[in-house]
Every structure is written in C-alpha cells, then in structure tokens.
Design a protein around this nucleic acid. Structure first.
Lengths: 215, 215
DNA sequence: CAGTAAAAATGAACCACGTTCACTCTTGAT
DNA sequence: ATCAAGAGTGAACGTGGTTCATTTTTACTG
C-alpha cells in the first residue's frame, strides 16, 4: 500500500496518529453508549456526538453500525482474555485452567454492564468469543486432552459450542431465569462437554480460585 | 370476558372464526416470506399483502414484527416436537430418546429453509426452543436421569443450555464453518453435558435411527 | 328488518435511523 | 506558496416499522 521509506515496521506516523485517536474515540464512545442504553438504542448520531465527530465520520472507520458494535465487543473481550491468561499462568492442572476461564467469562458477562447489553446478540457475541478467546481456550483444551484430563476429538469444535453455552447461561442469569449460584453446575456441564465424567468435573469446579488481576 | 350462555368451553364461534383465519393467514404469510428472504428482509407490508390484508391489520394480532416472527417460529417448532414425540414413542433406552431428539432438531435446523434464516437470532430461537420443546425434552432428561443413564442435578437447566448448543452447532453448519458430518460429535457433547461419559455417549450417538414421520 | 354499537380491517402518513455523498478542512510533501 | 491526498462533515435520503382516524363487517336488540 505504501511504497515510502520504511518496510513495514513503523510504516507511517504523523496523521496516522490522528486516525488512531479518532478510531479509538469512536470505539470508546460506542462502548459507553452501548453499555448505557443497549446496542439497539445506541444511535450512530449519539455515538458520533460523544466522540465529538461529525455524523458521517464513523463510516470512514466502520462500514456499519453492526461492525462498530462488533469491534467494541472485541476490544472488551480481548482485555478479559489477557487478564485470564495472566491469572492462570501458574496453574498446574490443565483442566482447571479451562474451568477458571469459562467461569471468569460468565462472571464478567453477568456482572459487567457492558456485556449484559451485548448479550442480546447471541450469535454475534458467541462468534466474537470464538475468534478472540478461542486461541487461548482451544490451546488449553488441547493441552488438557493431551494430559488425559479431557476427551475430545475436536478441541476447536468443543470450544465453539462452549461459547454458545457461555452466552446462554449468562443470558439466563441476566434474565433472572437462572440464579447466578448455578454457575458451578454450568462449569460442570462445560467440563462434561469436554468429556470429563460428572464426579471429576464436580471436583474441578469446586476448587478454590485466585482473583483476577485488575483491569 | 364474555358473560353469555356458555361457561368456557366453546366460548364464542362466529366472527371469532374470522380472527382465527386472519391470524393464521398472517402466520402462514410470515412463514413463507421469512423463509424466502430472511427475517430482516421480510417487511410487514409484504407479509400483509401476501395475506391479502391491510398494512395495519397485522398489528391487531401481533404487537410487533418481532412478535410475529417468534410466533412463526413457535409454530414450526411445535410441529417438529410432535413429530419427534411420535418417532420416539417405542424407544426403550431413555438416553436414546434424548439423543434422537437433539439430532433431529439439528437436522431440521440445518436443512429446512425456514429455520436457517431464523437462526440469525440465536437468543430468540434458543428461548423459543426452550419454551416449546422443553416440556418434552426435560421430561426425557428426567426419565433418563432416574434410569441412571444421565447424571444431572437440574434437567431444566441442562436443556436450557442444550438449546444454545443446538443453535450454535446449526449456525456453524449453515455458515460452513463446521461440516454437517460433525453431528455425531455434537450429539456426544450434548450427552456429555448430561453427564454421560465419552465412550458410552459415543455408543448411544452411533446407534441406527428410525425415520421421522412426514409433516 | 332496521338500528346500533362493538370488533376488525384499513392504508396514508409519521418518524426514527442508518447510511450516503458532495463538499470543506487538514496535512505534509514539493 | 501550492497542491493533492486524506480526513471530516452534516444535510438530506430512503427504508420500513408503527400509528390512528376512518371505514367496513359482524352481532345483537326492539
């Protein structure tokens, strides 16, 4: 795209900074407003206004409102994935790494105002979760399978389906149709999906857990 | 509401027939058009036209386009649930009843044009599935648990989460991101969620199955 | 069989939003 | 200073869900 001096590292840095700042402003404004009133109720007009930009500017960065929403979501998820990664660094049982991860995602999804609204688009959030958190989670599943803790043929598919369970359970808790305390049962089922027999799953799900590092 | 002769049985039958026919016409038109072009692309105008009714008439029956879509969905699901019920009437292993049910739902969802579009609203379809098919499925899970085939504390929750897996897998197949042949693995995971150990689950999932009765 | 009131149907008009695009402003190189 | 490319702008557009005052149909009564 750019045949000036630098090869690829430090490709261009002048007005490109402005683009980055604008894009980030849009993302931040979108995150705020979508968290406040929900994805549907958030209008492009208001988002642009909060970012202190013209109405049409957003469309120089995101092809549609939906695409902006997805980007907002990805940003939130990416941050959480990194925090989980940090918290599980010292774990010895690979099954527990996975259990901690899924539990933490549920916790955040049901607690954080930003997630609660986004949940209303289950396919979208599940897909984003698969793309953003998948690399970590699938690796963990594969490791656990090699260690004989999990029994799955296709770790990829296992996590893909797991994302839908995560979203589904979170949604139910937010609705009030399931109590948050059922989270242990949910983790047990998630482990069951990974081929862990019930008693063993219950034991893993019940173990004490470290705190997440702060955001 | 009506204090004339009859108590409750045969409450009123004259112009009520018209209402029923109008409602059904709307439902049928909605089902057709939504199947043809998708839920979003279907407009209330076109649905009303196909039902040979005025633009506003639909709103005497359904509070919103969304509500109409959900009703369409419920009708489709209800029919499928009854067919599954009929097909599994003679089964002896309760685990297999459940396995047959979930497998059939996936098959229909990925095959039937009506479902494929509706899948884009995962939370809605999962919720409808829980409400419409739940009574049957949860009963089956409970029976299997009592027979010692399943190990679940909360059959209700087990199926609620299962609906999200069903939707998620169907969605992935329709996307082309998972091959339809993975359906056996999906059934195994669904059984795993119900506390069935891997080998056993694989055996149940692999058994031959009778055909569904025609619609 | 009027006569009448409630129920159902109607469709033009409303309005909210996402999106577009012709135009202006900023940037950075010559 | 000049200019072209990139970034920003916001009025205007189009689509489509929803409303509501009005008309038509239905059911009941004297």
């Amino acid at each position: 795209m750019n045949e000036t001096a630098g090869t690829d590292l430090e490709p261009e840095n002048r007005s490109a900074r402005r683009k980055r700042r604008t894009r980030q402003a849009l993302l931040d404004a979108g995150q705020q407003i979508m968290a406040e009133k929900g994805v549907d109720a958030a209008t492009m007009l208001e988002i642009a206004a909060r970012a202190d930009l013209g109405t049409g500017t957003a469309y120089n960065y995101f092809a549609s409102k939906d695409e902006l929403a997805v980007s907002v979501l990805e940003q939130v998820m990416d941050r959480l994935a990194r925090r989980i990664e940090a918290a599980t660094a010292g774990f010895t049982d690979p099954a527990q790494v996975y259990a901690f991860g899924v539990r933490t995602v549920i916790n955040e999804a049901t607690t954080d105002r930003r997630w609660r609204w986004l949940l209303r688009r289950a396919e979208v959030i599940a897909d984003a979760m698969y793309r953003i958190m998948g690399p970590y989670a699938i690796r963990d599943i594969r490791i656990a399978a090699q260690a004989g803790r999990f029994h799955v043929d296709d770790p990829d598919m296992a996590f893909r389906l797991a994302t839908h369970v995560l979203v589904g359970f979170s949604l139910a808790v937010c609705d009030g149709s399931l109590p948050a305390a059922k989270i242990d049962d949910a983790v047990v089922m998630l482990l069951g999906m990974a081929g862990v027999p019930p008693q063993e799953a219950r034991a893993v799900a019940g173990r004490p857990r470290p705190a997440l590092p702060p955001e």
